[in-house]
């Protein structure tokens, strides 16, 4: 056995062992040295504690998947080149051959994930080539937004308040061509939509339209008035 082949087998073995160890963990966090550095050098643009906690979990899961795929691909790539040394000659070196053959694993994995996901979403009505993408785009908010469309005339303005990125995006898309406004000023969480409406009524915001409506996207995202008991849509000037 040549030294290179022995080294490749060792790399394959270590990578496979590493992949197995990573697969046993739910989350993989950044190295301690980075965590310590962050704690000792406080950034002036930090996340809130709640955001930090949520984001830490997301990052941990992403890092776990990255490492798992990386090590699995390296294990397969190194093993393949150990078995088929001619690959290294045509690829221009052992490392390029290992990485290219390892990528085949990722190709197969991505292919199966994508096809599987597309089939599932097609069955659920989310994948569509039809002219009506309203339901696939708005998802769980479809019935609420369809109701808003019926109630709000197309020439009247809609003022969106609250925080929910998905609900904000789909509401502003689905309610087009109604003029869409956003309340730039932050609203205290204790405010009801009635209080917000009363404040808006005294301002010139969107006042040049025949009518004004206010939508609380946070309440909308939680299922609307029926589910939360809180107002989600009000006419401003009644």
């Amino acid at each position: 056995m040549t030294p290179i082949r022995a080294a490749l087998l060792l790399v394959a073995l270590l990578s496979a062992a590493g992949a197995w160890l990573v697969s046993e963990r739910e989350l993989v966090f950044e190295p301690d040295v980075i965590t310590t550095w962050r704690a000792e050098h406080v950034d002036d643009r930090p996340l809130t504690a709640a955001q930090e906690s949520e984001f830490r979990a997301i990052r941990g899961a992403t890092r776990r998947q990255d490492l798992l795929l990386l090590l699995a691909a390296l294990a397969v790539g190194a093993l393949a080149v150990a078995v088929w040394p001619a690959a290294a000659r045509t690829a221009g070196g052992t490392v390029p051959a290992v990485l290219a053959l390892g990528a085949v694993v990722l190709l197969g994995w991505s292919l199966s994930m994508s096809v599987n996901n597309q089939i599932h979403r097609a069955v659920a009505g989310e994948w569509t080539l039809s002219d009506d993408a309203f339901e696939s785009f708005t998802g769980p908010l479809a019935s609420l937004l369809a109701d808003y469309r019926e109630r709000i005339p197309e020439d009247e303005a809609v003022i969106l308040v609250g925080v929910d990125p998905f609900a904000l995006n789909v509401a502003s898309w689905a309610l087009y061509p109604r003029p869409m406004y956003m309340l730039v000023r932050p609203i205290p969480q204790t405010y009801t939509l009635f209080q917000v409406r009363d404040e808006i009524a005294g301002t010139a915001l969107a006042a040049d339209h025949p009518g004004r409506w206010v939508v609380h996207v946070t309440v909308m995202a939680q299922g609307g008035a029926e589910r939360t008991g809180r107002a989600d849509l009000l006419k401003v000037d009644e």
């Binding site: 795929l69 290219a100 990528a103 991505s110 994930m113």
Partner: peptide, 11 residues
């Protein structure tokens, strides 16, 4: 081959 193995192209 390595390029085609970029998951961003399909996932």
């Amino acid at each position: 081959l390595a390029f085609l193995g970029s998951p961003l192209l399909m996932r």
